[in-house]
């Protein structure tokens, strides 16, 4: 019993310590924002790989989720004759919650893992040491461009995801559930408020930062060997996912608790 409690306590302390180190890592990363040299080429490449190349997977995730959401609300709503609210609930559900969260998790799966594996491999094969000896700060050259790119492009991905998700709901609503196109769109547009959209984009930015920071942090701290790379990648994806879901709760509280 005592042993079990001690174990839980140790785990909690370790998690807190890790959180502290990630926070410190974040501060260090952003401190390079105002200290040259800068690496625009690396930033451009990161925008391509984080943003542009994530579009297909984001689109697919969103269209299916929006469609499924419409079906669920219709069949669930039928129990208390509320079938008519499908467009509104799809819009709110996608924009406020599912769009940012699903995009965030897809980015954690796709981007965090690849950042962590790439940087950990560089660490294990001494490429990070080589960077330093060539007078290049890995935080400036590797971390900052990726973190910045994710923070700026993931909101765009979320916006795209929101729109495609609503479109998925629209397709199901119009072709399966018998809504007229005009009513569906009208209801969607009338119901959404600016705050819904702002919260969606802010969440996207926060999730993007978390996803990239977790990837860089775990990659940079990778232990040696192929096993080290595997552990770093796994740790990064788990941490990014948990942090994103926790941040989602906090941000939802901030935006909508009043």
């Amino acid at each position: 019993m005592i042993a079990a409690l001690a174990r839980i306590g140790r785990l909690a302390l370790a998690a807190l310590a890790a959180l502290g180190r990630i926070a410190l890592f974040t501060v260090q990363t952003f401190s390079h924002l105002v200290r040259p040299p800068f690496y625009p080429r690396e930033f451009g490449q990161a925008v391509m790989s984080v943003g542009w190349q994530s579009l297909p997977v984001v689109a697919l995730t969103a269209v299916f989720t929006g469609g499924a959401l419409a079906l669920q609300i219709y069949s669930g709503g039928a129990r208390f004759s509320a079938e008519a609210v499908v467009p509104q609930i799809v819009a709110i559900g996608m924009v406020r919650e599912l769009g940012p969260v699903l995009v965030g998790l897809m980015v954690a799966a796709r981007v965090t893992s690849s950042i962590a594996a790439e940087i950990a491999t560089m660490k294990v094969t001494e490429q990070i040491d080589a960077l330093v000896t060539l007078s290049t700060d890995p935080m400036k050259y590797l971390t900052l461009p990726r973190v910045l790119a994710a923070g700026l492009t993931v909101p765009v991905l979320v916006a795209v995801g929101d729109i495609i998700g609503i479109f998925g709901g629209y397709m199901v609503g119009v072709y399966r559930l018998g809504f007229t196109p005009v009513t569906y769109l009208q209801n969607t547009v009338d119901f959404l408020e600016p705050l819904d959209i702002i919260s969606s984009l802010v969440k996207g930015g926060a999730f993007g930062l978390l996803a990239a920071l977790a990837g860089c942090y775990f990659g940079m701290r990778s232990s040696r060997g192929a096993q080290g790379v595997g552990r770093a990648t796994k740790g990064a994806v788990v941490a990014a996912s948990v942090l994103i879901l926790a941040a989602n709760f906090v941000l939802t509280e901030v935006f909508f608790s009043a």
């Binding site: 094969t125 040491d129 000896t133 007078s135």
Partner: peptide, 18 residues
């Protein structure tokens, strides 16, 4: 640090090419 490192060249054990 930059002045210091500018004096050095290093060939790493595994070449460590990017």
């Amino acid at each position: 640090r930059d002045d210091f490192l500018a004096k050095f060249g290093m060939l790493f054990q595994g070449a460590a090419l990017f």
